[in-house]
């Protein structure tokens, strides 16, 4: 199936909105779960969008913009996964892999902007010194506008402009190659989880990871709710334990302080 001009424009408008949302981290409609669903709806294949949303969301679970780092772009990944699956007839799992170059392209554009937007800082300093809040507000919002428009243009070119060569390329792929992409789509969440663990996992948390892993292996249930409940229970145990310890520590310290300078502030 092809993407019509109208659909292309519609998706590009949505890219503008969700791109700004990602820039500001506002409503999280930039996550693949929402991006895929809406793109699917716009292309007239809602079910495909939802399924692709579930798969792509997990593939990107750990790839988060924490601390000003920039992950492969979730907006373009979501849009292109659905578009590729829709236009070529491949499964969403295969399409995730094929969408990756578009996602990395957008990541590098945003990284470029992070450097480029430093040019505004000097002028903003001047407006601040003059207490000119109107001009300050206008200029401080400029980067957001630039980013939004960039998303719209890139999305339109990728979704509408590049679809014919892309379809030819995908259709020319041998079976083992598309099967390889599909497998890679299934393994990809491991990278995201690895990134999450890099910032979270200390030696003391390994037991909890193993408890969660084992629980999920053997509890046959449609979703991860049981594991989340086990996790919440463990977290609560740890929390009360740590609170009690800190109270005891404080009391000990008080007693020690009193013992050290008891002579001077007897009155208290």
């Amino acid at each position: 199936m092809t993407v019509t001009l109208g659909e292309g424009l519609l998706v590009s408008l949505f890219a503008l909105i969700s791109g700004i949302d990602f820039w500001l981290e506002g409503f999280y409609i930039f996550r693949p779960m929402i991006v895929c669903t809406v793109t699917g709806l716009m292309l007239g294949d809602l079910r495909l969008g939802i399924i692709a949303g579930g798969l792509t969301e997990l593939a990107f679970a750990g790839l988060t913009p924490v601390g000003g780092t920039q992950p492969p772009n979730p907006v373009m990944a979501g849009i292109m996964t659905v578009v590729i699956a829709h236009t070529t007839g491949h499964s969403p799992a295969t399409a995730i892999g094929l969408a990756l170059p578009f996602s990395i392209l957008m990541q590098y554009i945003i990284l470029f902007y992070y450097s480029a937007f430093s040019v505004f800082t000097k002028k903003l300093d001047d407006y601040a010194k003059e207490a000119n809040t109107k001009k300050f507000a206008r200029l401080a919002l400029m980067p957001t506008v630039v980013v939004g428009v960039t998303y719209a243009i890139i999305a339109f070119l990728c979704v509408y402009g590049a679809q014919a060569p892309m379809r030819e390329l995908v259709n020319a792929m041998p079976g083992w190659l598309s099967h390889g992409f599909q497998i890679a789509g299934g393994i990809l969440p491991a990278v995201g989880f690895g990134v999450l663990l890099k910032s979270m996992l200390k030696m003391q948390y390994v037991p909890y990871l193993l408890i969660g892993f084992t629980a999920a292996c053997f509890i046959k249930f449609g979703n991860l709710m049981p594991v989340a409940v086990i996790g919440a229970a463990l977290a609560f145990i740890e929390y009360s334990h740590a609170r009690r310890n800190s109270v005891v520590d404080k009391k000990l310290k008080e007693i020690q302080d009193n013992a050290n300078n008891g002579g001077e502030d007897d009155g208290i």
């Binding site: 997990l58 679970a61 497998i183 299934g186 393994i187 969440p189 491991a190 989880f193 999450l196 663990l197 979270m200 996992l201 200390k202 948390y205 390994v206 909890y208 990871l209 193993l210 408890i211 969660g212 892993f213 084992t214 629980a215 999920a216 292996c217 991860l224 594991v227 989340a228 086990i230 996790g231 919440a232 463990l234 977290a235 609560f236 740890e238 929390y239 740590a242 609170r243 800190s246």
Partner: peptide, 24 residues
């Protein structure tokens, strides 16, 4: 303390996610 408790919950869930969603 709050970060510690959040990490316990997070790591438990990530363990579950690995088992459920990484397919090899």
């Amino acid at each position: 303390i709050v970060s510690h408790a959040a990490s316990v919950l997070g790591c438990t869930v990530i363990g579950g996610l690995i088992a459920s969603y990484v397919q090899i």
